[in-house]
Structures are given as C-alpha cells and as structure tokens.
C-alpha cells in the first residue's frame, strides 16, 4: 500500500518587500517600455505568498515528511529574515545584477531552499498578487509524476 501513493507537503509563508524592475542593459526608454510602471525609480512593493512543496517518505514514528518546526525555522532563516521588509534590488545580493521579477525570485528562493536537509524540495510557487503567480521546480517535474493521467 505504501508504494501505491506519493505524498507531498505544502506550506505557505508570507513576506512583504519592495522591488523595481529595471535592467542596466536597457536604455531608460526601453526600461519603461518593457517594465511600465514597475520601473518607477522609487520602487514599489508586494505582499508575497510563497508556497513550498516537499516530498519524501512519511516517517511512521512521526507521521510526517518533515517536522514543521524544522521547515519553519529553515525558511525563516533562508527567506523571511533576509527578504521581509527589504528592498530586494539593493538588499539581496542575488538581485544586484538580476532583475527581481517574481520569475527570478522563484529561482532564487528555490536555490536557497534546495539544501533543506530533511526532505526533497519539489517546487516553489510565489503569488506576487492575488492575480499573478509563478512556479519553479528546478530539474524536477512541475507536475508530480504520479499526477499525470
């Protein structure tokens, strides 16, 4: 029975941060054409919701893929503390050269969480607003294998 199913754990986190979409490769006109009001030099902010998906064996002793207290403190340390109430362009080294679109934010957060030692990171999904969301799975499948009809 154990091999008939596959379990993933999903956990949501929140942080608020500001950013500006602006590329040094583009002229000012190109920046405002490509990024529109997201290129406003003073920046703007979002309440980001980050959904983290993990897979692994459910430990029969605990009933868990990973202890939530371990996951929460890892995410707190890797993501919340360095990102929450920050200006991403200036205060997160990864975005000094890379435009902090939510696509790139997904990739950076995936990279930071990949070393979680207790379970396998499957996917990161970020809601930038209630209407926009982005997903990144590195080399994993975006859709779980067992999920394919």
């Amino acid at each position: 029975m154990k091999d008939a199913t596959r379990i993933e754990l999903g956990r949501r986190y929140r942080f608020a941060a500001s950013h500006r979409l602006h590329s040094s490769q583009f002229s000012e006109e190109e920046n405002s054409r490509v990024y529109g009001k997201c290129s406003n030099p003073f920046g703007h902010g979002h309440n980001y919701v980050v959904e983290v998906s993990l897979s692994g064996e459910v430990d029969p002793a605990t009933g868990m893929i990973a202890n939530l207290a371990d996951l929460d403190s890892f995410v707190e340390h890797q993501i919340i503390e360095p990102f929450d109430h920050r200006y991403l362009n200036e205060e997160v080294a990864a975005f000094h050269e890379t435009v902090p679109t939510t696509e790139n934010l997904c990739i950076e957060i995936f990279r930071r969480l990949q070393s979680f030692p207790k379970a396998k990171l499957e996917r990161v999904r970020i809601q930038e607003t209630a209407n926009n969301s982005f997903e990144y799975a590195g080399d994993n499948q975006l859709e779980p294998e067992g999920n394919r009809p």
């Binding site: 199913t5 596959r6 379990i7 993933e8 754990l9 999903g10 949501r12 939530l68 999920n147």
Partner: peptide, 9 residues
Amino acid sequence: DLYADCYRN
C-alpha cells in the same frame, strides 16, 4: 497555510 497532497505513485 498547511496541506498535504496525495497522488498515485
């Protein structure tokens, strides 16, 4: 903020 997904393996 917390859920589990079960799929056919």
